[in-house]
């Protein structure tokens, strides 16, 4: 082993720990506005992810300790949990997490080798396989008459005997669902926006949640754990695409601000699209990656079969990463036209 013999203090564990920490404001807002149910989801996903990670490491003959310590499995678990409906049944959470860790992460070669973002793979599998269960969102506390306690949430998640009336009283369509259903019923955007679930920009509560994720994301950027290119390009992609459509037909397409502050966009922009392993690595590549994901999100939201498109957009862009990277290699020091190798 030769030089260098000193290293910076940073480590994968530290990076991942900061990502988790940056999610905390979002989680706090989540609990505050939507009730404590999310804590159950998060815990369940975390335990499942760690167990799955340990088993897979053992099966693949890797030392468990350094890899469990890197916290990457927990990050995956949290991102998935925060993308799932807050009252999703326990088996949905477990299935999604298992799929994310076992298939999307380890079958692709483990930490650093996965082509797709594991959390988003888990999410995509769930929404394709269990579209109905994936709509069990708890409504914002502001709008629900009798909010669920932690125990009640847990019992909903674990399939306990909760009267259907109670459940119906707390679950609600997300703003994106509402918009989609409304549009399908030939209402105009303005009519739909008068529904109680909509707030100033996005949905009531959801705007605050988005704001909290934005805050966490900015912290990560300030710490240089994520680059500015991906989130900015992602948000710009969404804003431009939504704005373009809205400009031409405000009646049929949601406003750009609404799309920006819909749940999952901020989370996607700062925490999911910025996943280094499955994202582009070059500066220009990151811009393309983010912008493409933003564009695709709006396209899927508008014309696709599912209300939200962040997960699919990011997965699609993950696919393009090798190509993007290859064609956006930055100029190196002292590079001249002659020494520039054509991308092979």
């Amino acid at each position: 082993m030769a030089s260098p013999f000193i290293i910076d203090r940073s480590s994968v564990t530290q990076v991942m720990a900061w990502v988790l920490a940056a999610l905390l404001p979002g989680i706090a807002v989540y609990v505050w506005l939507f009730g404590p149910g999310i804590l159950v989801t998060l815990s369940l996903a975390t335990v499942t992810a760690l167990a799955a990670e340990a088993v897979m490491l053992k099966a693949r003959g890797y030392p468990a300790k350094p890899f469990l310590m890197d916290l990457s499995a927990i990050v995956t678990a949290w991102l998935l949990a925060l993308s799932l409906p807050s009252l999703a049944p326990w088996w949905l959470i477990v299935t999604g997490t298992l799929f994310a860790i076992v298939v999307a992460k380890h079958l692709y070669g483990g930490l650093g080798q996965n082509i797709f973002n594991p959390a988003m793979v888990g999410y995509a599998v769930l929404i394709v396989s269990f579209p109905v269960q994936m709509t069990q969102w708890a409504g914002p506390l502001e709008l629900t008459a009798t909010p669920l306690t932690l125990a009640q949430s847990a019992s909903v998640i674990f399939g306990g005997d909760v009267p259907k009336a109670t459940l119906d009283a707390v679950t609600m369509a997300t703003p994106l669902d509402a918009l989609r259903t409304g549009l399908l019923q030939q209402h105009t955007v303005d009519e739909i926006m008068t529904q109680s679930i909509f707030g100033h920009y996005g949905g009531i509560g959801f705007e605050w949640l988005a704001g909290a994720f934005l805050l966490g994301g900015l912290v990560l950027w300030a710490l240089r754990i994520i680059s500015w290119q991906v989130p900015l390009a992602f948000l710009a992609g969404i804003w431009l695409a939504a704005g373009f459509l809205h400009f031409f037909d405000a009646g049929r397409f949601g406003a750009p601000w609404f799309h920006l502050f819909a749940p999952s966009v901020m989370l996607g922009a700062f925490f999911i699209a910025t996943d280094p392993v499955s994202g582009a690595t070059t500066p220009r590549g990151k811009l393309i990656f983010g912008f493409g994901a933003g564009l695709l999100t709006i396209i899927i939201r508008t014309w696709g079969g599912y209300p939200d498109g962040v997960a699919f957009a990011i997965l699609l862009m993950n696919l393009c990463v090798p190509l993007i990277d290859q064609y956006t290699q930055p100029r190196v020091y002292g590079e001249t036209k002659k020494t520039r190798a054509p991308p092979a």
């Binding site: 080798q113 240089r224 280094p276 690595t281």
Partner: peptide, 9 residues
């Protein structure tokens, strides 16, 4: 050493 996580630091 752990695997590269492509963080581009």
């Amino acid at each position: 050493a752990l695997p590269c996580i492509r963080c581009t630091r």
